[in-house]
Design a protein around this nucleic acid. Structure first.
Lengths: 132, 132
DNA sequence: TTGTCTGTTATACTTATAATATAACAGTTA
DNA sequence: TAACTGTTATATTATAAGTATAACAGACAA
């Protein structure tokens, strides 16, 4: 269950952010099914060798962003209805975050085609899981 | 000169990072020509209403990443030879940073085509400048 | 040569964030 | 009852971001 979560303690991106990314990637790859349960904050923290509050922070944000639900009974569960679909606000925010990346790529002489094909490579990583 | 630099003091992205992004975007849009001079750390800091060290931090990183040169005589100058072109390391790092963004997009039901067309929209922002 | 500008370095301070460490509370369930 | 769940509170440490002064050495024009 926790097997696919890998953290880099040397990275400058915060642990709770890495944890969020790993869980979101797990959902995208269909390694965690919709409605499936996730480990408790204490057990996941123990398995990963980190603090309970670090896991809790990641869970709270994932809940806030609609990826998971937290029932008092069932515990932590991947949102069975799927994640809130992309809307105009999401597109606008995504554009803001991608612009600096593309500006740098342009400066480094990277072609639009190369950038797009790199995007397509990453999409392929997630499409494999669709067949499961 | 400084006219196109806009900072958001409410943003959670650090000021020196925003400043780097603005300058890189300026280069990508050909609003700053290769070899052209940039304001001194003190004058830019005064114009933007921020501290000299914040500007210096941005300049140092831009220098480190090959976007600008700093001569003791000529002051700060956009690298006349252009920026260090994209290599395999750059592609690998770019992939790492884009993966979480794409994973979330997949979860939100965004199609590969929609994502790519958003990328193409951003590229168009920079291509306009090519005609200058 | 005297100012004035340049980047650079050093020190100090404040604030915010990240991460950990305990502890406790209330509800669930075997 | 006992062991688990999420949640909240408090405290501590470490690091990053931003500001505030100050000083140094080189460039350059008056």
């Amino acid at each position: 269950m926790v097997v696919f979560i890998e953290l880099d303690f040397e990275s400058k991106t915060p642990i709770y952010t890495q944890l969020k990314h790993e869980i979101i990637a797990g959902i995208a790859r269909n390694e965690i099914a919709l409605g499936e349960g996730l480990p408790s904050v204490r057990s996941l923290a123990a398995d990963l060798g980190i603090n309970l509050h670090t896991v809790n922070k990641a869970y709270q944000q994932l809940k806030q962003e609609g990826f998971i639900l937290i029932h008092r009974q069932k515990g932590v569960v991947v949102n069975p209805d799927g994640v809130t679909p992309a809307d105009e606000t999401y597109y606008a925010d995504l554009k803001e975050t991608l612009r600096p990346s593309i500006a740098e790529a342009v400066c480094r002489g990277m072609s639009e085609e190369d950038y797009v094909s790199l995007i397509q490579d990453i999409f392929k990583e997630f499409k494999k899981g669709e067949k499961k």
